[in-house]
Nucleic acid binder design. Structure first.
Lengths: 207, 207
DNA sequence: TGTACATCAGTGAACGCGCGTTCACTGATGTAC
DNA sequence: TGTACATCAGTGAACGCGCGTTCACTGATGTAC
């Protein structure tokens, strides 16, 4: 009876259901967490039937891959931006902080990104082809920043930085760190402080 | 017809089904990974009906918790042992290496341990009551090892070390590190080298 | 401009599956007398 | 030492659920002439 408004009326053909499904997946992740991310739930959230996604993705894994890929792409842009705004004499810390903040602000998405990588046993370093990629950002920063004697040391330092950022991103949510966070004035100062202390737990070094 | 052998005959009452279920879960983890760890699968592996575990655990989550707790207990023993064998002038690295090796040798168990912690949003630092606990090991080492000006620095350094170890444990399996591993002569030398490079990616410091 | 038709992108019902959990039950054990 | 009985620790069938995926279908779109 009532004439449908623009928002109510959805044409039979969606327009860009692939896009809409990925967006729906991200909305679900925010709201319900990774465990709620079934193919059916994503279709439901996007307002289509359970079979509709199969016109755009081979199976559930491929949909999750697409969500993860998009996550890594946004991550990459975030790091690039952090890099461009960082002072020349200290670039690594801002980039690492940007990495950890990205993960902490979207923990469910980050989980999906990492799970996808784990299934492939491979970080998405070669994804999406360009130079605009997260790993390249970190690598370039380490090479530029450090006084690394050998290429081997560069590789090891990159690995160490990446692991540190990942570890902090995964652990920052634990309750044990609440006192530390409030003492330092919030989560971001806490993250920054921990990053600055990476490597400072060794004897014979000072800040 | 045939008389059952000792291994075939299982009495109606199990003896210690709780123990047997945890062992079965760990066997399943080794063989099939964390995704295969359903309550029914554990019961199947232990050779009992799907309802039997409910006499020993309130629900599935409680069974998984018990598996995780046992994991953290073994971890703690491993770290204590590493600590006791380490030279006094460098204790932190051996302890961190022991942590990462433990996780890498039982990746599925480690996943369960961490997932349980994540659900509680809390590391199992207070579990099982004694001083024989993983966190205390790392803390004691950091305090003893470092030249930390303030208690705050000690806390931050502990957090940094723990995050670094966790991050490395989770990432060490990625294919990207294969070249590095074989160049260094295996996974353990690789892990050791990365740990030694934690903090060395900063400018102005040397090994 | 109009029409025929192939193709595309949805629907909705159905499939089989393994899951966590519950239930009434029964065999085995241990304790009181 | 023997018996009655409460309690413990299993069984196995059943429940409802949400899942991934398939299928025959149909409405909408776009292209050829």
């Amino acid at each position: 009876m009532s004439e449908p408004t623009a928002s109510e009326s959805r044409p039979y053909h969606h327009g860009d259901l692939r896009r809409a499904l990925i967006d729906a997946a991200r909305r679900l992740l925010e709201a319900e967490g990774p465990a709620a991310l079934s193919l059916r739930a994503v279709a439901r959230e996007a307002g289509v039937s359970p079979a509709a996604p199969y016109h755009h993705f081979k199976d559930k894994a491929q949909l999750l891959d697409a969500v993860a890929d998009e996550g890594w792409l946004i991550m990459s842009r975030t790091l690039t931006e952090a890099l461009s705004q960082a002072p020349a004499e200290d670039r690594l810390n801002p980039v690492m902080l940007a990495y950890v903040r990205f993960a902490r602000e979207r923990p469910a998405l980050y989980r999906v990104m990492y799970d996808a990588a784990r299934i492939k046993e491979s970080l998405p370093l070669e994804a999406s082809g360009g130079q605009d990629r997260a790993y390249e950002r970190i690598r370039a920063t380490v090479v530029e920043q450090g006084t690394q004697p050998t290429p081997l040391d560069v590789e090891l330092a990159i690995t160490a930085a990446w692991c540190a950022a990942h570890g902090l991103a995964e652990m920052a949510g634990f309750r044990q760190f609440e006192p530390l966070k409030s003492e330092l004035g919030g989560e971001v100062p806490f993250l920054d402080a921990v990053l600055h202390h990476m490597g400072l737990y060794r004897s014979g070094r000072t800040a």
